[in-house]
Design a protein around this nucleic acid. Structure first.
Lengths: 213, 213, 213, 213
DNA sequence: AATGAATGAGGTTTCATTCAT
DNA sequence: GATGAATGAAACCTCATTCAT
């Protein structure tokens, strides 16, 4: 009946984004409905369209927000020390953020399928941005001195693998919350740090020559 | 109008499964429609329901098939050598399988959201099975001698992270196909092998004591 | 795999009819599926079509069977006495039959809607046949002597109303099974018998003349 | 293409209900399709779901409306006189309502099978409510003086039977429209009134003692 | 700035029925 | 006599999106 209280855009928009993030995180792009999101935000559907244009637009806004937050976390973590300590604090910061944002992680790493085709490049780009940021983190930490140029060129690929490992550990942690998150982080540190250093310093393993009869 | 050729179930069912796998891999659970799958399989929707009961049933059949194949690949790879060589061949076999099965990977690692709630536990179980299989792979290769019992208990968690790292590298490879897959595998090997060994042998890194002023 | 044991039609048909009656009684024409009926009868769908031509054909066969049984029951009951005693025994026989056949009643009196339009006249005819049979029952009992010709002409209408009253009492009984069925029958007897006699003997009630100002 | 005229809910909803009632009355729950109802109401399906939630919800809304109307009719009829005259007017009012509402009757008394299981209790309750209302009608008319308490307790059962008799007569009338409805009502009056009075006053018929040799 | 009314299109699922074997 | 394979059609329901107010 009565029209809802008018709010300026700066106040209304974050409410909508928050509701949308929850919905997308919990149910994925396709299963989250604009109806639900509008209801959760306490407004009506046309408002969502007025602010974000389309479902895809809303999703992209969420994705951008999540990406931004994550990068900020990584960079902040990296500043807290040098070398292995920087990496260690980056890991811890990441676990903290995941813990605080519950399943925002899903946005970047669990909801890759579904939605219009136009979404795929957007998602890929978001992940690449995060990978780049974490590559920077390694470079700024241990890679500082004597990084082989070939390795530097491929740092992003390594970062991608590395970040995926972190993602896997996080999922494992979310399903096994009995162990404290520091234990998970420590295991990751031990799994990755040594190889990372070797890669950087060029101390490489190679497969033995195949012997064919 | 024209009647389709009749096939016995043993022949028709695999055709349906193949079509369904392609559709789910490419578009995810929610966006793959039973209509499309039926058309791609060259039959009509009711046959899908006659053989698989429901969309979820069909999906689960696909998931089981993919999981089975992947495990077989891992185990076969692991048998081709010992220690680091076994691990290396496991990696190579995995890359080969991914290459041959294009995006079957997506089934297990990119389509986690969406679909009815009953699907979540099924997906989780599938991934856990794969993680267990790869944990076995490490244990049978390098861990053979003197594995610390604590590490063995957590092997599955490490395997999960490790497998995710492999997944990330694979995704990166799929998006950067200019480099041969052996290069990607080699980078992974170097990233992971050393840390894996250290973890097993208990040569651990620990964070320096925090100093608070 | 293996073909079911061949049975002569005389043995197979009653099994099908029995399964169909159960299904139609419990779920009505539209909600009973040929699949279910075939499964319940232990045969495959094409057999149903071979024997009864169509779903409607099967339904009509069931309806005819039920109608026949019911008429037989009425006539048998009516022969057990004269006058009020005949009527009373007719009622009792009816309750017995309903009790033994559980919900066959639904066939004639609870499943009037649904199904193809061609079914409506068939159902109407079945009910009319039952009404005629029960009209005969009254006529043969108390109406024997001195029945006014006008009333005789309308006996069928009365029978229809009367039979519906019985139906209502039966439904009530099925929902309140704490009281023995004889009590329900007795109440009906008292509700209907007196008026029935008066109707036959022409001792009629008429509305008082309306006074308009 | 062309946009339909917009109506406020208070105007649109009754139109939907009317269309739904016609469809359910004519074809029963299962055979009435939401598509048809929407078309008959001049809107599209999603509006039906927006306002009534589901097919069952729509059906229940219709059922409630019909029940309410019928009860009002019964009570209004009963107020037009006392004793036999009240009963007589109740009957007449009922016939009038049936005539005016064509086959609304079907809702309560001809569509008992079919539809989801959750519907059965709803239907049963509706009929019980009507039975209670008509029981009240008798009680307030003839039963006024000296109603035996046992009879009062069973009044609802009697009402159920009685109402079914009326229903049967109405069906008969609808199939034999040559006779005016007052004649049908009069026949019912004569069939039921006497027995009803006897039941109330305890002047009961009992079966003769069975003699077994 | 905000909403209630409205829809086109598409989704999963079921069913009566037929045909080749 | 009996079956497994197959389908056309239609059912209920949902959703992203728009428009008039």
């Amino acid at each position: 009946m009565e029209t809802r209280r008018r709010l300026p855009r700066a106040e209304r928009e974050p409410l909508m984004l928050a509701a949308a993030r929850r919905a997308f995180e919990e149910r994925g792009y396709r299963d989250a409905s604009m109806d639900d999101i509008a209801a959760a935000a306490g407004i009506t559907k046309p408002m969502l369209y007025a602010y974000f244009g389309s479902k895809q637009g809303l999703y992209e806004a969420c994705l951008e927000q999540v990406t931004g937050e994550l990068i900020e976390v990584l960079e902040a973590g990296g500043r807290r020390g040098t070398d292995d300590v920087a990496f260690w604090h980056g890991l811890l910061a990441l676990f903290d953020w995941v813990e605080a944002n519950e399943r925002a992680w899903a946005f970047l790493y669990l909801d890759d399928r579904g939605g219009p085709p136009g979404l795929a490049p957007v998602r890929a780009r978001s992940r690449a941005v995060v990978a780049a940021a974490s590559a920077r983190l390694f470079a700024e930490s241990s890679l500082r001195d004597g990084i082989s140029p070939d390795v530097a060129a491929r740092a992003e690929g390594v970062a991608y693998a590395l970040f995926s490992a972190v993602g896997g550990a996080i999922e494992w942690w979310l399903e096994h919350p009995d162990e404290p998150k520091e234990m998970h982080a420590l295991r990751l540190m031990n799994l990755l740090w040594q190889g990372l250093g070797d890669l950087q310093r060029g101390r490489l393993w190679f497969p033995p020559p195949e012997r064919r009869p």
